[in-house]
Every structure is written in structure tokens, then in C-alpha cells.
């Protein structure tokens, strides 16, 4: 749900290049964005980040189990 809420942001972002035609002389990756390929980049990075998070969580759990075993309080 939260992710969906956050997902609203990119939708807004996607509209911006369309609403404001490239009048600015500064070159940005507007075509790339309009083609929607930027979402592939976001998806790949999120996938890798998710994998690393899952790995970190599993380390956290292992540490917790060791703490229980050794009866470390606080």
C-alpha cells in the first residue's frame, strides 16, 4: 500500500516532461522517459536493493537467535 502511495510520485513525474514541452535549452533524458524505459532501470535497482535487504534481514535474525541462545539481555 505504502509503495503504491509512493508510486504516485513517478506518475506525476512522468507527466511533467509531457506537460511542459522541452522549451528549455538544457538537454535531459526526455525521450528515454517518454518511452517508459526508465521504469526498467527503477525495477532492476529495486530488485537488487530488495535482495540485499532480504539478506540483511536474515543476518539480523541470525544474530537475534544467537542472542537468545546466549541469553543476552537488554
Amino acid at each position: 500500500m505504502l509503495l503504491l502511495n509512493l508510486g504516485l510520485n513517478p506518475l506525476k513525474a512522468q507527466q511533467i516532461p509531457e506537460n511542459s514541452p522541452v522549451t528549455s535549452s538544457v538537454e535531459m533524458a526526455d525521450t528515454f522517459r517518454q518511452e517508459g524505459k526508465i521504469y526498467v532501470v527503477v525495477a532492476v535497482i529495486l530488485l537488487l536493493f530488495g535482495g540485499l535487504v532480504i539478506y540483511t534481514v536474515s543476518i539480523d535474525r541470525k544474530v537475534k537467535r544467537l542472542e537468545k541462545e546466549l541469553e543476552i539481555q537488554e
Binding site: L3, L6, G7, N9, P10, K12, A13, Q14, I16, S24, V26, E27, M28, A29, I38, V41, V42, I45, L46, F49
Partner: peptide
């Protein structure tokens, strides 16, 4: 961090010379 990755890549940014994207 998920928000940073998503919005960091998709949210509008100022159009600045040299820096671009």
C-alpha cells in the same frame, strides 16, 4: 530508501546545464 530510488530516478529535477540528469 525505496522512496529514494523510485523518486530519485523519476521525480522532476531542475534542468541545469552540465549536470543534466
Amino acid at each position: 530508501l525505496v522512496y529514494t530510488i523510485v523518486a530519485g530516478l523519476l521525480a522532476p529535477v531542475p534542468r541545469l546545464a552540465i549536470l543534466n540528469e
